[in-house]
Structure formats: C-alpha cells, structure tokens
Design a protein around this nucleic acid. Sequence first.
DNA 1: CGAAAATTTGACATGACTCAACTGGAGTGG
DNA 2: CCACTCCAGTTGAGTCATGTCAAATTTTCG
Lengths: 195, 195
Amino acid sequence: MSKEIIPLISYFKSFIPLSKEEIKALNERVTERRIKRKQFILQEHEVCRYYTFVVSGCFKMYSVDKDGTEHNLQFASENDWIVDIDSFHNKKPSKLYIAALENAVVLQIEKNDLWYLYTYFPKFDRNFRVIIEYKFIELQNRMLQNISATGDEKYEFFLKQYPQLANRLSNTQIASYLGITPQFLSKIRAKRIRN
Amino acid sequence: MSKEIIPLISYFKSFIPLSKEEIKALNERVTERRIKRKQFILQEHEVCRYYTFVVSGCFKMYSVDKDGTEHNLQFASENDWIVDIDSFHNKKPSKLYIAALENAVVLQIEKNDLWYLYTYFPKFDRNFRVIIEYKFIELQNRMLQNISATGDEKYEFFLKQYPQLANRLSNTQIASYLGITPQFLSKIRAKRIRN
DNA sequence: CGAAAATTTGACATGACTCAACTGGAGTGG
DNA sequence: CCACTCCAGTTGAGTCATGTCAAATTTTCG
C-alpha cells in the first residue's frame, strides 16, 4: 500500500479486527495528508469535514476567546483521533481550531465515506462506538479533576497520565489545557523542584 | 406493556427508529425500577452493573474526595442515561456514586443483555454510538467552559443551557457541578440580582 | 548567529475558599 | 397550632489560590 494505512488497521485491531473487505473499503476511503508544524486542519467558522487519525506528529484543538487567549480542549498524537464532532455531524461552523504542533502524517475520512462504512460494515459502528466510549471516559476523568483539584494537582495528574505527551508539549500548551496561566504553571513547577 | 418502556422507544425513535423485533428484544431485556429520593443505584467500590435510562425523576453522579466533599460529574433527568461507563465496561470498582435527587422511575439494562442487543441488532451499536457522540459534545462544551470561564460565567452558561434542570436542583448541587463552593455561588447570585 | 518565542520571576490585584454566624423555610412531634 | 430541629441559603471577615502586568532570562528555530 502506498498510503500509511497500516497504523490505522493495527489500531482497529486492538478493538475488533477488520476483515479483508473492511480493510479494502476503509483503504479506498481514507486520504493521507502531510501537515507541517503550525498548519491548521480546521479553523473557526469552517465546517469540520474530516475525522482525522494521527499516524505521526501531534495536534491541538482549541478555542480563542474574545481577549485572543487560546484554550486547549484536546491534544492528539499517534493512534488518536481529532475532530470537532459537533461541526462534523451537524455541518455547522466550528468554534474551534485544530493545528499541528509538530510535522505530522494523518489519515482523513470524509463524512460521506464514513457514512458508507457505517452503512455497509456495521463493525465500524461498533468500533467507533467503543472508541468514543473510551474518549468519553477520559474526558470525564479530566472533568472530575477540573472541578475538584487545584492547579498543582491537575498538573501532577497530567504528568502522570500522559508522561510521554508532556515531554513533547511546551508548558504554555499544557497550562492552556489545564485551564491555568503559563505564569502560574511556571510557579507550580518552581515549587515542585524546590520540594 | 406493563413496563414503562414507551419513553425509551420514543427516545430511540429520535435517533433511528427500532423495528418490531428490536423493540421486542429490548423490552425483554430491560428492567423497570422505582427509586426513592436519596437512594443509591451505584456506590463507590461497587461495579456498575447497569446502563440506566431515566423515565422520570432526577439523578446525580458524583465522587467524594478525602475531605468528604462531593463533586457532581453529571446530572440525568427524563430521557437521559446515567452509568459509570468505565466501571460498567471494564468490570472494575467504581469511584463514583449515583443517587436519586427525586423519586424516580428507570429502565435498566445489564451488560450481558446490552451485548446481546449489540450482537444481534447492529442498530443498537449505531444508536448508542450516536447517543454517546452527543454526550461527548456536551461534555466537551462543559470542559471548554471550565478551562476558560469564571464562576459567574459558568453559572450563566449552566442556567442558559439547562434552564428546566436548574429549577429542579438545589444551588448546592449546581455549585458542586460547576466546581465552586455553595457560598461562592450564593455570592454570585446576590451580585446577579443587584445588577 | 540572531530574532522570536517560551519561561521565569516579582509585585500587586482579584477571584474563590474557609469559617462562622445568621436567616428562613420545611418537616415533625407534642 | 406552636416549638423544635434540620437543612439550604446568605452574609461578612479574613485568607489563600490564581491571575495580571512587566521585566529579565533562556530556549528554540529559522
């Protein structure tokens, strides 16, 4: 195969393995794209046209408030999906941006193609149900942290849960994800080192 | 039908309507339960055995931290689901409680039965995929609020998004959901009235 | 190497929490 | 019908967590 689709096949295999026909159908409907660092795959007011699977590299999805401050809603690196589901599903203009934090290779599926897969191969319904269930659990855990923990605790939790990701991200990006200012994160880090 | 299953059928209908066979299979696998105010349907350290559909009444799902403070992760009222998915899926002890805030009627599905439905009627995979996608969108919006808004803004947003629910909940419950103290919410409300 | 961005640091301001006292219903039992 | 308790809500004083602004320093990357 010319496209880098193998990581995606392996990924699905970890849920429910795909048959030859399903792999073929998937392969025919997936587009490979190479994205450079700082490039956008979604900008505010656009409709999110793709479900994007990250083969390599790293992305952030974020909103920009009225003061111009960014708020990171999600990161996605290898073997993860990134999409504004609300915009994608309902064809409505997104309030979010998705940008590459590193040069990246992705596989993208358009809505019509995904619908085709859902319709003719129910296993995709199953797989995507399970995938989003896991993402939901992850988000719920983050939510619980957010309503119950202090800045220090949120940072500790993040480092513990995503040690490999934390290495690749700037502290500014992490602060934006945790919902604190970069200056305050810097002070948290200074205190950690002292103790 | 003796059970109050009609609300559930109507609910599914708003996604993809069920066939006669699917309704029958669903009906055979769903248990109706009446829950009194303050009663638990899940407690910490138990495994969450049911996907629970709320026919009437209102629930909260929350954790209790080391100081004994409750943190509301989710509410569920009519035509909504409540379940600790992580515990349910992976048969692991829950860290959460689910308690009724009002007398309630629910329909519950056990894991084996849900698996049966998924296996023999792929439409349930589809329906539950779409259901959780919507819940994911909702949770993402809440997350975005949480990392970017002040207490006042979070409260405004909550009132605007769930006006009917806000009427039924005590301010203490709302504060716990927003991640602020009831005292601080009270001050926010006092300021709102002044302006 | 040099410009731009990220990080750190300090002084100060404000948001949000804590604790404790008070208020005002909603039961409950006499 | 009253006295009582029990909660939820309110309020105020003091404190702590976190944000803002600005400047200095370090790192990154073209």
